[in-house]
Design a protein around this nucleic acid. Structure first.
Lengths: 111, 111
DNA sequence: TGAACAGTTGAGAGATTGTTCAAGTGTGAG
DNA sequence: CTCACACTTGAACAATCTCTCAACTGTTCA
């Protein structure tokens, strides 16, 4: 019966996505899991913006925003394009808007 | 032109969700942003499980799992029902499965 | 050339997070 | 009652995170 129980547990384990996939999934959601990054992604859904503009909208330092943009870039959620001495940022992923919309729907339904 | 610029920034600010809403959104995504919690939510999509079973599936201590379950309970994503001396956990939110599916689709599309 | 501007980067402080370990609660079986 | 079992909880610790500050790169313009 120990064996039955182990099989039972093993079956569930086998049905789950691989650890690497789970890690990727968690990393993706982590991007949206910080208010500053969520706001940045929210802005960029409205229009492309440079770093200074994002900092103004959020009321934060350019440096703090730049640090978060680096993380979002690494996660391939935004991309930055140099235009003269500015860097214009835009969403780099079709899913970003949908994922945020879905989350917002959920949050707004909460009672 | 300072004024124009300020209005421009202000318009974007006004179009974003309120800070409280953004915080709720970030807190929601934070739930999925840890591999242990993501796995727990993954298991519970397959079937309801008690704490020991979840710990076995994940290969983690009962204590560690219980701590994470407390967080998921606080976030209203799972609920625990006492059955004798066990506690059976189940998903407490229709959106959980869809949000994870959407995230997985995204992750699997990545190249 | 050089000064001003836009942004990036690294170090470090303070806060938050996830796990372990030990102790605790509550339930059922003998 | 007492013991074993299933689970929860609090303290402690290391790892990670986010911001600030200062220094740095690169671009434009006079």
């Amino acid at each position: 019966m120990e064996k039955d129980n182990n099989d039972y547990i093993q079956n569930i384990r086998d049905a789950l996505p691989e650890d690497g996939t789970i890690a990727d999934l968690a990393d993706l959601f982590k991007m949206f899991g910080d208010p500053t990054r969520a706001k940045i992604l929210g802005c960029l859904q409205l229009r492309d913006l440079n770093v200074g503009e994002i900092a103004d909208v959020l009321g934060m330092s350019v440096s703090a925003v730049s640090h978060q943009l680096r993380i979002l870039r690494a996660g391939k959620l935004v991309k930055g394009t140099k235009e003269g001495k500015e860097v214009k940022y835009s969403l780099d992923d079709d899913h970003v808007t949908k994922i945020m919309e879905y989350g917002l729907t959920h949050v707004n339904e909460e009672r």
